[in-house]
Amino acid sequence: MSRPVVRKSLVVAVAVVVVAAVAALLADVATAIRSEHRLSVAIAESPRVPYDPEVTLAGFPFLTQAGDGRYSGVTIAAKGVELPGCEPQRGVCRAELGATLGSFDGPEWGRFSGSDVLHTSSITAYTRLDAVTLARFMRITDLTLSTPAPDGKAGGGGPQDGVVSRSEGVVLTGTVALPPSDGLDPRNPPSASDYDGPKVKVSVAVDLSVTDGALRIRATDFYTGPERHVAADVPPGMRAAVLERFSMTLPRLPMAWGVEPERAESFGGDIQLVGASGPAVVRPDEF
């Protein structure tokens, strides 16, 4: 066989292998996407999940695990879950509920349904509140949250500073009336741009913890820097009362599949409860 013929045969063989590999990859990706959609729809059957959640199945190649019904893991993020204990006049309080399952057994070929029984090696779950929701619970309508960088290090405490989250020294900034009220009296709101009575905007350092399964926020002192903050003169006789307005224990919040929260921490401009469990049996429609 001549060299040109050999080269042509090799080129054809390589092309066939490449086409087959691409086709297999596309089939794998398509099956994974279809399975993720089915699991998302199944989880949305839960009464408290208002929208199809974001679902990402782990592992490659996916076809291998789908054929066996043994999956490497999955991450789930359900947004807009309504929370209990929020006053209707201040707006609905919502959270993002998320979970990561370790390896789990499920239906073959990703044919998930709400009533499936999934046996998983582990669950890590979180319930995340943004500043708007936290403000509604605390009745401080202009509330913002930030995570300062460690002492002696510049920056705002973001990933670029090596700080993703923390439970102590988290900064809350907001406006409260003077003297501080509980925010329930419409004539003396805790924070409002059109409130013409005495008020003060301050930055306060708080510690986050879990008490009897509930998020506890405890103000420790006024925050004075170095990160961006609001400095204000608070009358000495009102300092303790102003700090107290930034302390609260929230009602017990839902967690994915009833996982008990173990810690509370900041997450950028949000606050989240985090918990984990070992092997468990769960159903998508009970998320």
Rank of each mutant, 00 (worst) to 15 (best):
Lys153Ser: 12
Leu101Arg: 12
Val282Phe: 03
Pro61Asn: 00
Ser181Val: 12
Cys93Trp: 00
Val29Thr: 09
Ala24Asn: 08
Thr75Leu: 00
Phe287His: 05
Met138Lys: 08
Val202Asp: 11
Asp207Phe: 07
Met1Thr: 13
Ser121Phe: 00
Ser122Cys: 06
Ser193Pro: 05
Gly102Phe: 09
Phe246Met: 07
Ser209Phe: 06
Gly197Cys: 06
Val55Cys: 05
Asn188Pro: 01
Gly275Cys: 12
Val41Lys: 14
Pro180Ala: 06
Gly80Leu: 03
Val11Ser: 10
Gly114Pro: 10
Asn188Asp: 14
Ala205Thr: 11
Ser277Leu: 00
Pro88Lys: 06
Ala232Trp: 09
Gly269Arg: 15
Arg128Val: 09
Gly114Met: 12
Gly268Ile: 01
Glu36His: 09
Glu244Ile: 04
Lys8Glu: 05
Asp142Ala: 03
Asp221Arg: 15
Ala154Gly: 13
Asp270Met: 01
Asp105Glu: 15
Lys153Tyr: 13
Ala219Val: 03
Leu134Lys: 02
Ser115Met: 06
Leu172Gln: 01
Leu39His: 05
Asp161Asn: 13
Ala44Lys: 13
Trp109Cys: 02
Asp233Tyr: 12
Ser115Lys: 09
Gly106Lys: 08
Val176Met: 08
Val19Leu: 14
Gly67Met: 11
Leu215Gly: 03
Ser122Phe: 09
Pro236His: 07
Gly183Pro: 02
Arg128Tyr: 04
Leu172Pro: 05
Leu63His: 08
Gln160Val: 15
